[in-house]
């Protein structure tokens, strides 16, 4: 199929690193679903989908990388906060390393060809 070969699609890239991105935004402070979504978008991941983030949080929780707790609020709905646990931090460290080495390789590759921006 020739149609899939083309310019780099950010949503395609996101699929591979959304787990890492979600873990990363939870590194410094816990957050609830919509809050996490907002943080990702503010960090520059504009294309990230609501359902993708929500689903990713459920999956990371099911995999035992996150813990949750509910915070009641007077104004809006109760909020379910997600927090990294030890396994989540380990995963973040390992995936972070993988990403860095991958990114370095890609950078070097682009540099060699004189295509760096």
């Amino acid at each position: 199929m020739h149609t899939t070969v083309g310019s780099v699609d950010t949503t395609q890239l996101l699929k591979g690193v959304l787990d890492l991105a979600v873990l990363a935004v939870l590194r410094d402070s816990d957050g609830y679903g919509y809050d996490i979504l907002r943080r990702l978008r503010e960090a520059g991941l504009e294309e990230v989908g609501d359902a993708s983030v929500y689903g990713t949080l459920r999956r990371l929780f099911a995999a035992g990388l996150l813990t949750t707790y509910v915070v009641p609020s007077e104004s809006g709905p109760h909020r379910k906060y997600y927090a990294l646990n030890a396994a989540g931090r380990d995963q973040l460290t390992r995936s972070g390393k993988t990403w860095r080495s991958f990114a370095t390789t890609m950078d070097a590759l682009l540099e060699d060809r004189g295509m760096a921006a």
């Binding site: 959304l18 989908g49 609501d50 359902a51 993708s52 689903g55 459920r58 999956r59 995999a63």
Partner: peptide
């Protein structure tokens, strides 16, 4: 989208 992100197509999502 939720299904894909949560990996619900495979058996890994069923929990611990």
């Amino acid at each position: 989208e939720l299904r894909v992100a949560a990996g619900a197509a495979g058996p890994a999502t069923g929990g611990r």
